[in-house]
């Protein structure tokens, strides 16, 4: 612990995470994950002024899944998408399921980073969120085509409107979720490796 401290400049003097026991850090990490997911879930039904376009809000869960999968494996991206998708199903309607679309977004995001197509800053994360929002809504639209009794033409006109609004809003609000979570996970990773 001591030699590590001398070699590493502490990033923030207020909360000194580096002094914590690794197990405490793990628990803190779990709490951060739980609370951030909870915040995203609770902001889903709200439509605050400035967060609304044609009656639609940002897709907070998608932003969270992208922020999670950017530096993780495709498997953990899929698990995150599946979990949040199941919860969102509970909050809206089970068929068609959101789990598939969010899991697709998680897997694709993880692959994107592996290939190093884009740098890791929040402009590119906003771009990834933009693309993933369109992917996720398209997967949902395809499911609607197969399982629901909705009119085919209506699904695709709805899809255009929803995908575009969701993509614009989600990418605009992505840094709000991505920036603090990314800072925290970077710090934790650095400490775990040292």
């Amino acid at each position: 612990m001591t030699n590590y401290r001398s070699s590493f400049k502490r990033p923030h003097p207020l909360i000194n995470v580096s002094n914590w026991h690794p197990n405490t850090r793990q628990i803190a990490n779990a709490i951060v994950i739980f609370c951030s997911v909870m915040l995203c879930l609770l902001s889903l039904p709200t439509r605050l002024p400035g967060m609304e376009l044609l009656g639609l809000g940002p897709n907070w869960l998608l932003i969270w899944v992208v922020a999670w999968s950017v530096k993780r494996s495709a498997f953990s991206g899929a698990i995150a998408g599946l979990t949040l998708g199941l919860i969102q199903d509970g909050m809206t309607a089970p068929y068609p399921t959101h789990a598939i679309s969010l899991a697709c977004a998680g897997i694709l995001t993880a692959f994107l980073k592996k290939e190093r197509y884009v740098e890791e800053d929040f402009i590119s994360v906003a771009l990834i969120v933009f693309g993933m929002a369109i992917v996720a809504e398209t997967v949902l639209a395809l499911q609607f085509m197969t399982v629901s009794d909705r009119n085919l033409a209506e699904i695709w006109t709805d899809h255009q409107r929803i995908a575009l609004c969701s993509a614009i809003l989600s990418s605009l609000w992505a840094p709000v979720v991505y920036y603090p979570l990314n800072l925290w996970w970077e710090k934790i990773n650095l400490l775990d490796q040292s």
Partner: peptide
């Protein structure tokens, strides 16, 4: 654990989440 928790949330129609939402708002 995580998947079963999500499954429970799905089966209970997210009841806990909506209760908390109502409390917070």
């Amino acid at each position: 654990l995580v998947i079963s928790a999500a499954w429970i949330a799905k089966q209970t129609q997210g009841a806990a989440i909506f209760e908390i939402y109502q409390l917070v708002t």
